[in-house]
Amino acid sequence: MPRLAHTLQLATALLAAGAAWAGWHHHWPALAFLAYGTFYGGLLALGAGAPPTCCQISKHSNGQAHGAGCTRPPLPRRDTYRLTETERDAFEEITAGFDDRSAA
């Protein structure tokens, strides 16, 4: 986790402690201010720990799609399905009928 995220987490913890103290001593305006700062600082700390996105399309598609000018290198191909010779023959036999346009 980057240093910024740790700093924001520390600041959020201090704001939460201040909000607890203000609530205990019935300082309601201070409690409201510190509670808001705690909430906002927590959101910033969560965002600071996230890896940067490569382009706006990636940002809005949770990394599933990338724009044409995206600088992110392509992922290596991950073929996790390897067929044995027997399985490949069985697959070819099953799919051979798919090219046939006649009724089954």
Score class of each variant (00 low, 15 high):
88 R>C: 08
54 C>M: 01
64 Q>H: 15
73 P>N: 00
39 F>G: 05
60 H>Y: 15
46 L>C: 09
76 P>I: 00
6 H>Y: 07
46 L>N: 14
73 P>S: 09
48 A>L: 05
26 H>T: 07
44 L>D: 02
40 Y>Q: 13
47 G>A: 15
14 L>C: 04
85 E>A: 10
11 A>Y: 05
59 K>T: 13
37 G>Q: 01
16 A>T: 07
68 A>W: 09
4 L>H: 04
23 G>W: 05
60 H>M: 15
33 F>G: 02
2 P>Q: 05
13 A>R: 07
4 L>P: 00
97 G>Y: 05
17 A>Y: 03
65 A>Q: 14
26 H>V: 04
43 L>I: 06
74 P>C: 02
10 L>Y: 07
78 R>G: 11
83 L>T: 08
7 T>E: 07
46 L>F: 13
104 A>I: 14
8 L>Q: 01
93 E>V: 12
101 R>N: 12
57 I>M: 15
15 L>D: 00
56 Q>G: 13
53 T>Y: 11
92 E>N: 13
16 A>D: 01
4 L>G: 00
17 A>G: 09
72 R>M: 12
38 T>N: 02
29 P>M: 01
9 Q>E: 12
49 G>L: 04
56 Q>R: 10
2 P>R: 01
82 R>N: 10
50 A>G: 02
71 T>V: 13
98 F>E: 13
8 L>K: 02
27 H>Y: 13
50 A>H: 14
45 A>V: 01
21 W>C: 06
17 A>W: 01
69 G>F: 15
9 Q>R: 07
71 T>F: 12
59 K>Q: 15
51 P>D: 06
26 H>M: 06
50 A>T: 10
77 R>I: 09
78 R>K: 13
93 E>S: 14
43 L>Y: 13
74 P>D: 12
28 W>M: 11
101 R>D: 15
5 A>T: 03
35 A>I: 10
90 A>E: 02
97 G>R: 07
5 A>I: 04
46 L>T: 09
42 G>V: 06
83 L>M: 11
43 L>D: 12
8 L>V: 04
31 L>Y: 09
81 Y>R: 14
104 A>Y: 10
89 D>W: 04
46 L>S: 11
63 G>H: 04
89 D>N: 02
56 Q>L: 13
13 A>S: 11
58 S>L: 07
41 G>D: 06
41 G>V: 00
9 Q>T: 09
48 A>N: 04
40 Y>L: 13
103 A>G: 05
91 F>G: 04
84 T>D: 05
30 A>W: 05
100 D>Y: 03
2 P>Y: 09
103 A>E: 13
92 E>D: 13
88 R>G: 06
35 A>W: 06
9 Q>S: 06
42 G>K: 09
10 L>W: 08
3 R>V: 09
17 A>N: 03
98 F>A: 13
7 T>N: 05
100 D>H: 07
60 H>N: 15
76 P>A: 02
80 T>G: 14
22 A>D: 03
39 F>D: 00
3 R>K: 04
71 T>S: 12
16 A>L: 08
53 T>R: 10
40 Y>D: 15
10 L>M: 06
43 L>H: 12
75 L>C: 00
57 I>N: 03
17 A>H: 02
20 A>Q: 03
94 I>L: 14
22 A>M: 05
